[in-house]
Design a protein around this nucleic acid. Sequence first.
DNA 1: TCTTGAAGCTCTAGTGACTAGAGGTTGTAG
DNA 2: CTACAACCTCTAGTCACTAGAGCTTCAAGA
Lengths: 138, 138
Amino acid sequence: MFSIGQLSKQTGVKVPTIRYYEQVGLLVSAGRTEGNQRRYDKEGLERLGFIRHARDLGFSIEAITALIDLQQHPDRSCQEATEIAQHQLTDVREKLLRLKALETELVRIADGCDGEGSSEECYVLASLADHEHCRGEH
Amino acid sequence: MFSIGQLSKQTGVKVPTIRYYEQVGLLVSAGRTEGNQRRYDKEGLERLGFIRHARDLGFSIEAITALIDLQQHPDRSCQEATEIAQHQLTDVREKLLRLKALETELVRIADGCDGEGSSEECYVLASLADHEHCRGEH
DNA sequence: TCTTGAAGCTCTAGTGACTAGAGGTTGTAG
DNA sequence: CTACAACCTCTAGTCACTAGAGCTTCAAGA
Ligand SMILES: [Zn+2]
Ligand SMILES: [Zn+2]
Ligand SMILES: [Zn+2]
Ligand SMILES: [Zn+2]
Protein backbone atom coordinates (compact mmCIF):
# COMPACT_ATOMS: atom_id res chain seq x y z
CA MET A 1 0.00 0.00 0.00
CA PHE A 2 1.21 3.48 -0.89
CA SER A 3 0.52 6.85 0.63
CA ILE A 4 -0.47 9.70 -1.68
CA GLY A 5 3.04 11.10 -1.37
CA GLN A 6 4.65 7.85 -2.47
CA LEU A 7 2.27 7.66 -5.42
CA SER A 8 3.22 11.21 -6.28
CA LYS A 9 6.93 10.44 -6.21
CA GLN A 10 6.60 7.34 -8.34
CA THR A 11 4.48 8.95 -11.06
CA GLY A 12 5.62 12.55 -10.98
CA VAL A 13 2.03 13.72 -10.43
CA LYS A 14 1.71 16.31 -7.69
CA VAL A 15 -0.20 15.44 -4.56
CA PRO A 16 -2.95 18.06 -4.98
CA THR A 17 -3.38 16.89 -8.56
CA ILE A 18 -3.95 13.32 -7.40
CA ARG A 19 -6.61 14.57 -5.00
CA TYR A 20 -8.10 16.55 -7.86
CA TYR A 21 -8.26 13.40 -9.97
CA GLU A 22 -10.19 11.74 -7.19
CA GLN A 23 -12.55 14.66 -7.02
CA VAL A 24 -13.41 14.36 -10.70
CA GLY A 25 -13.81 10.61 -10.42
CA LEU A 26 -10.69 9.51 -12.29
CA LEU A 27 -8.82 7.78 -9.51
CA VAL A 28 -10.24 6.54 -6.24
CA SER A 29 -7.96 5.33 -3.47
CA ALA A 30 -8.10 1.68 -2.45
CA GLY A 31 -9.14 2.76 1.02
CA ARG A 32 -8.29 4.99 3.96
CA THR A 33 -6.35 4.53 7.17
CA GLU A 34 -8.08 4.88 10.53
CA GLY A 35 -6.86 8.46 10.50
CA ASN A 36 -8.52 9.08 7.10
CA GLN A 37 -5.38 9.10 4.97
CA ARG A 38 -5.55 7.67 1.46
CA ARG A 39 -3.88 4.38 0.70
CA TYR A 40 -3.34 3.04 -2.82
CA ASP A 41 -2.53 -0.39 -4.18
CA LYS A 42 -0.62 -1.41 -7.32
CA GLU A 43 -3.70 -0.96 -9.45
CA GLY A 44 -4.02 2.64 -8.33
CA LEU A 45 -0.39 3.24 -9.16
CA GLU A 46 -0.82 1.83 -12.63
CA ARG A 47 -3.96 3.79 -13.25
CA LEU A 48 -2.28 7.02 -12.23
CA GLY A 49 0.54 6.14 -14.64
CA PHE A 50 -2.03 5.72 -17.39
CA ILE A 51 -3.65 9.05 -16.55
CA ARG A 52 -0.29 10.79 -16.43
CA HIS A 53 0.77 9.44 -19.80
CA ALA A 54 -2.55 10.25 -21.44
CA ARG A 55 -2.45 13.80 -20.02
CA ASP A 56 1.09 14.18 -21.33
CA LEU A 57 -0.27 13.28 -24.75
CA GLY A 58 -2.89 15.98 -24.39
CA PHE A 59 -6.00 13.88 -23.79
CA SER A 60 -8.70 15.64 -21.79
CA ILE A 61 -9.92 14.36 -18.44
CA GLU A 62 -13.20 13.51 -20.12
CA ALA A 63 -11.44 11.43 -22.79
CA ILE A 64 -9.32 9.68 -20.19
CA THR A 65 -12.41 8.86 -18.16
CA ALA A 66 -13.90 7.15 -21.21
CA LEU A 67 -10.65 5.31 -21.93
CA ILE A 68 -10.34 4.00 -18.39
CA ASP A 69 -13.96 2.98 -18.48
CA LEU A 70 -13.19 0.95 -21.57
CA GLN A 71 -10.14 -0.54 -19.94
CA GLN A 72 -12.31 -1.80 -17.11
CA HIS A 73 -14.34 -3.86 -19.56
CA PRO A 74 -11.80 -6.03 -21.41
CA ASP A 75 -14.48 -7.71 -23.52
CA ARG A 76 -15.90 -4.54 -24.97
CA SER A 77 -14.92 -3.40 -28.45
CA CYS A 78 -12.14 -0.87 -28.52
CA GLN A 79 -13.73 1.17 -31.27
CA GLU A 80 -14.31 4.11 -28.96
CA ALA A 81 -10.65 4.09 -27.95
CA THR A 82 -9.48 4.47 -31.53
CA GLU A 83 -12.05 7.17 -32.11
CA ILE A 84 -10.82 9.11 -29.11
CA ALA A 85 -7.21 8.75 -30.26
CA GLN A 86 -8.09 9.81 -33.79
CA HIS A 87 -9.95 12.80 -32.45
CA GLN A 88 -6.99 13.78 -30.34
CA LEU A 89 -4.71 13.48 -33.34
CA THR A 90 -6.99 15.68 -35.41
CA ASP A 91 -7.03 18.20 -32.61
CA VAL A 92 -3.25 18.26 -32.37
CA ARG A 93 -2.93 18.66 -36.13
CA GLU A 94 -5.31 21.61 -36.14
CA LYS A 95 -3.30 23.27 -33.41
CA LEU A 96 -0.11 22.55 -35.34
CA LEU A 97 -1.47 24.25 -38.45
CA ARG A 98 -2.54 27.26 -36.46
CA LEU A 99 0.80 27.53 -34.66
CA LYS A 100 2.76 27.19 -37.88
CA ALA A 101 0.83 30.09 -39.35
CA LEU A 102 1.47 32.11 -36.20
CA GLU A 103 5.15 31.30 -36.31
CA THR A 104 5.46 32.57 -39.87
CA GLU A 105 3.86 35.88 -38.99
CA LEU A 106 5.72 36.25 -35.71
CA VAL A 107 9.08 35.69 -37.34
CA ARG A 108 8.31 38.49 -39.77
CA ILE A 109 7.01 40.75 -37.00
CA ALA A 110 9.74 40.10 -34.47
CA ASP A 111 12.53 40.35 -37.02
CA GLY A 112 11.05 43.48 -38.56
CA CYS A 113 12.28 45.75 -35.80
CA ASP A 114 15.56 45.90 -33.93
CA GLY A 115 13.98 47.68 -30.98
CA GLU A 116 16.15 50.75 -31.34
CA GLY A 117 13.65 53.18 -32.80
CA SER A 118 10.68 54.96 -31.26
CA SER A 119 7.40 53.19 -30.69
CA GLU A 120 5.74 55.53 -33.17
CA GLU A 121 7.58 53.99 -36.10
CA CYS A 122 7.83 50.48 -34.69
CA TYR A 123 7.19 47.71 -37.18
CA VAL A 124 5.99 45.38 -34.41
CA LEU A 125 3.28 47.79 -33.33
CA ALA A 126 2.34 48.63 -36.90
CA SER A 127 2.01 44.95 -37.77
CA LEU A 128 -0.23 44.28 -34.81
CA ALA A 129 -2.40 47.25 -35.69
CA ASP A 130 -3.13 45.99 -39.17
CA HIS A 131 -3.57 42.46 -40.42
CA GLU A 132 -2.81 43.75 -43.93
CA HIS A 133 0.86 43.44 -43.06
CA CYS A 134 0.40 39.71 -42.64
CA ARG A 135 1.47 37.35 -45.42
CA GLY A 136 -1.28 34.84 -44.78
CA GLU A 137 -4.26 33.97 -42.64
CA HIS A 138 -3.98 32.91 -39.05
CA MET B 1 -19.96 57.14 -32.29
CA PHE B 2 -20.56 53.40 -32.23
CA SER B 3 -22.60 51.22 -29.93
CA ILE B 4 -20.97 48.12 -28.50
CA GLY B 5 -22.91 46.01 -31.00
CA GLN B 6 -21.60 47.99 -33.97
CA LEU B 7 -18.07 47.69 -32.65
CA SER B 8 -18.62 43.98 -32.30
CA LYS B 9 -19.83 43.64 -35.88
CA GLN B 10 -16.94 45.63 -37.31
CA THR B 11 -14.22 43.76 -35.46
CA GLY B 12 -15.68 40.30 -35.03
CA VAL B 13 -15.19 40.50 -31.27
CA LYS B 14 -18.24 39.37 -29.31
CA VAL B 15 -20.10 41.90 -27.20
CA PRO B 16 -19.44 40.20 -23.83
CA THR B 17 -15.77 39.96 -24.76
CA ILE B 18 -15.62 43.70 -25.37
CA ARG B 19 -17.14 44.27 -21.95
CA TYR B 20 -14.58 41.84 -20.54
CA TYR B 21 -11.76 43.85 -22.13
CA GLU B 22 -13.10 46.92 -20.39
CA GLN B 23 -13.21 45.08 -17.10
CA VAL B 24 -9.53 44.17 -17.35
CA GLY B 25 -8.60 47.69 -18.40
CA LEU B 26 -7.77 47.06 -22.05
CA LEU B 27 -10.45 49.13 -23.72
CA VAL B 28 -12.48 51.88 -22.14
CA SER B 29 -15.47 53.37 -23.97
CA ALA B 30 -15.31 57.02 -25.01
CA GLY B 31 -18.34 57.66 -22.86
CA ARG B 32 -21.88 56.63 -22.02
CA THR B 33 -25.31 57.74 -23.16
CA GLU B 34 -27.79 59.19 -20.69
CA GLY B 35 -29.17 55.69 -20.38
CA ASN B 36 -25.73 54.29 -19.49
CA GLN B 37 -24.96 52.56 -22.77
CA ARG B 38 -21.38 52.51 -24.02
CA ARG B 39 -20.38 54.65 -26.97
CA TYR B 40 -17.08 54.32 -28.82
CA ASP B 41 -15.20 56.58 -31.21
CA LYS B 42 -12.85 55.72 -34.06
CA GLU B 43 -9.95 55.38 -31.67
CA GLY B 44 -11.80 52.74 -29.71
CA LEU B 45 -12.56 50.87 -32.90
CA GLU B 46 -8.91 50.88 -33.90
CA ARG B 47 -7.78 49.81 -30.50
CA LEU B 48 -10.17 46.91 -30.50
CA GLY B 49 -8.82 45.94 -33.92
CA PHE B 50 -5.33 45.98 -32.47
CA ILE B 51 -6.41 43.83 -29.53
CA ARG B 52 -8.20 41.39 -31.79
CA HIS B 53 -5.22 40.99 -34.08
CA ALA B 54 -2.79 40.57 -31.22
CA ARG B 55 -5.05 38.00 -29.57
CA ASP B 56 -5.30 36.14 -32.88
CA LEU B 57 -1.52 36.00 -32.85
CA GLY B 58 -1.63 34.51 -29.38
CA PHE B 59 -0.43 37.46 -27.31
CA SER B 60 -1.71 37.46 -23.74
CA ILE B 61 -3.89 40.21 -22.33
CA GLU B 62 -0.97 41.23 -20.17
CA ALA B 63 1.33 41.54 -23.17
CA ILE B 64 -1.27 43.47 -25.12
CA THR B 65 -1.72 45.85 -22.20
CA ALA B 66 2.01 46.59 -22.29
CA LEU B 67 1.98 47.01 -26.09
CA ILE B 68 -0.92 49.45 -26.00
CA ASP B 69 0.77 51.32 -23.22
CA LEU B 70 3.78 51.68 -25.46
CA GLN B 71 1.63 52.76 -28.36
CA GLN B 72 0.26 55.58 -26.23
CA HIS B 73 3.76 57.00 -25.85
CA PRO B 74 5.10 57.46 -29.40
CA ASP B 75 8.41 58.89 -28.20
CA ARG B 76 9.34 55.93 -26.03
CA SER B 77 11.75 53.31 -27.30
CA CYS B 78 10.10 50.28 -28.79
CA GLN B 79 12.56 47.86 -27.26
CA GLU B 80 9.92 46.34 -25.03
CA ALA B 81 7.67 45.73 -28.04
CA THR B 82 10.31 43.67 -29.80
CA GLU B 83 11.03 41.80 -26.60
CA ILE B 84 7.38 40.92 -26.20
CA ALA B 85 7.18 39.77 -29.81
CA GLN B 86 10.35 37.71 -29.47
CA HIS B 87 9.01 36.13 -26.32
CA GLN B 88 5.78 35.26 -28.05
CA LEU B 89 7.70 33.71 -30.92
CA THR B 90 9.75 31.61 -28.53
CA ASP B 91 6.58 30.53 -26.83
CA VAL B 92 4.96 29.50 -30.10
CA ARG B 93 8.07 27.58 -31.14
CA GLU B 94 8.12 25.66 -27.87
CA LYS B 95 4.50 24.73 -28.33
CA LEU B 96 5.25 23.68 -31.90
CA LEU B 97 8.01 21.35 -30.78
CA ARG B 98 5.81 19.80 -28.16
CA LEU B 99 2.90 19.33 -30.57
CA LYS B 100 5.12 17.81 -33.23
CA ALA B 101 6.31 15.22 -30.73
CA LEU B 102 2.71 14.54 -29.73
CA GLU B 103 1.69 14.18 -33.36
CA THR B 104 4.36 11.56 -33.99
CA GLU B 105 3.23 9.45 -31.06
CA LEU B 106 -0.45 9.92 -31.76
CA VAL B 107 -0.08 8.81 -35.38
CA ARG B 108 1.54 5.62 -34.20
CA ILE B 109 -1.05 5.09 -31.48
CA ALA B 110 -4.13 5.91 -33.53
CA ASP B 111 -2.97 3.91 -36.53
CA GLY B 112 -1.93 0.98 -34.39
CA CYS B 113 -5.45 -0.28 -33.93
CA ASP B 114 -8.37 -0.59 -36.31
CA GLY B 115 -10.90 -0.54 -33.49
CA GLU B 116 -12.25 -3.96 -34.32
CA GLY B 117 -10.71 -5.96 -31.50
CA SER B 118 -11.50 -6.11 -27.82
CA SER B 119 -10.31 -3.42 -25.44
CA GLU B 120 -8.16 -6.00 -23.66
CA GLU B 121 -5.79 -6.31 -26.60
CA CYS B 122 -6.15 -2.74 -27.86
CA TYR B 123 -2.92 -1.11 -28.96
CA VAL B 124 -4.28 2.34 -28.14
CA LEU B 125 -4.93 1.41 -24.53
CA ALA B 126 -1.66 -0.47 -24.23
CA SER B 127 0.28 2.50 -25.59
CA LEU B 128 -1.35 4.86 -23.14
CA ALA B 129 -0.62 2.53 -20.27
CA ASP B 130 3.09 2.46 -20.96
CA HIS B 131 5.34 5.19 -22.25
CA GLU B 132 7.83 2.47 -23.26
CA HIS B 133 5.79 2.07 -26.43
CA CYS B 134 6.64 5.63 -27.39
CA ARG B 135 9.36 6.28 -29.93
CA GLY B 136 10.54 9.50 -28.31
CA GLU B 137 9.98 11.94 -25.48
CA HIS B 138 6.98 14.22 -25.28
C1' DT C 1 6.16 6.07 25.76
C1' DC C 2 6.61 10.57 24.25
C1' DT C 3 7.73 14.14 21.18
C1' DT C 4 8.38 16.40 16.99
C1' DG C 5 7.83 17.59 12.41
C1' DA C 6 6.83 16.00 7.82
C1' DA C 7 3.04 14.61 5.56
C1' DG C 8 -1.65 14.19 5.40
C1' DC C 9 -6.64 16.08 5.57
C1' DT C 10 -10.75 19.43 3.90
C1' DC C 11 -12.36 23.51 2.06
C1' DT C 12 -12.17 27.73 -0.43
C1' DA C 13 -10.45 30.64 -3.87
C1' DG C 14 -7.48 31.90 -7.79
C1' DT C 15 -5.53 31.23 -12.67
C1' DG C 16 -6.66 32.94 -18.20
C1' DA C 17 -9.74 34.46 -21.34
C1' DC C 18 -13.66 34.25 -21.99
C1' DT C 19 -18.94 32.48 -22.15
C1' DA C 20 -23.74 31.87 -20.44
C1' DG C 21 -27.66 33.28 -18.16
C1' DA C 22 -30.87 35.91 -15.20
C1' DG C 23 -33.36 39.80 -14.68
C1' DG C 24 -33.90 44.39 -15.62
C1' DT C 25 -33.44 48.96 -18.70
C1' DT C 26 -32.82 51.76 -23.00
C1' DG C 27 -32.88 53.00 -27.88
C1' DT C 28 -35.19 53.28 -32.12
C1' DA C 29 -38.06 52.01 -36.10
C1' DG C 30 -42.62 51.71 -37.58
C1' DC D 1 -46.64 55.31 -28.74
C1' DT D 2 -45.57 50.70 -28.79
C1' DA D 3 -42.70 46.71 -29.57
C1' DC D 4 -38.67 44.51 -29.27
C1' DA D 5 -33.83 44.25 -30.27
C1' DA D 6 -30.07 45.70 -28.00
C1' DC D 7 -28.17 47.18 -23.96
C1' DC D 8 -27.04 47.05 -18.80
C1' DT D 9 -24.99 44.60 -14.30
C1' DC D 10 -23.94 40.71 -11.73
C1' DT D 11 -22.99 35.98 -10.84
C1' DA D 12 -21.33 31.66 -12.07
C1' DG D 13 -19.31 28.25 -15.15
C1' DT D 14 -15.44 26.48 -18.25
C1' DC D 15 -10.54 23.47 -17.95
C1' DA D 16 -7.03 21.42 -15.32
C1' DC D 17 -5.00 22.42 -12.05
C1' DT D 18 -2.50 25.37 -8.04
C1' DA D 19 -2.16 27.91 -3.56
C1' DG D 20 -3.24 28.63 0.99
C1' DA D 21 -5.44 28.35 5.63
C1' DG D 22 -6.15 25.74 9.44
C1' DC D 23 -6.28 21.46 11.22
C1' DT D 24 -4.96 16.20 12.14
C1' DT D 25 -2.17 11.98 11.62
C1' DC D 26 1.84 9.15 10.96
C1' DA D 27 6.38 7.47 11.88
C1' DA D 28 10.99 7.84 13.51
C1' DG D 29 14.17 9.02 17.13
C1' DA D 30 15.01 9.93 22.29
ZN1 LIG E 1 10.09 48.53 -32.88
ZN1 LIG F 1 -2.59 39.15 -39.24
ZN1 LIG G 1 -8.04 -0.95 -30.21
ZN1 LIG H 1 4.86 8.31 -24.13
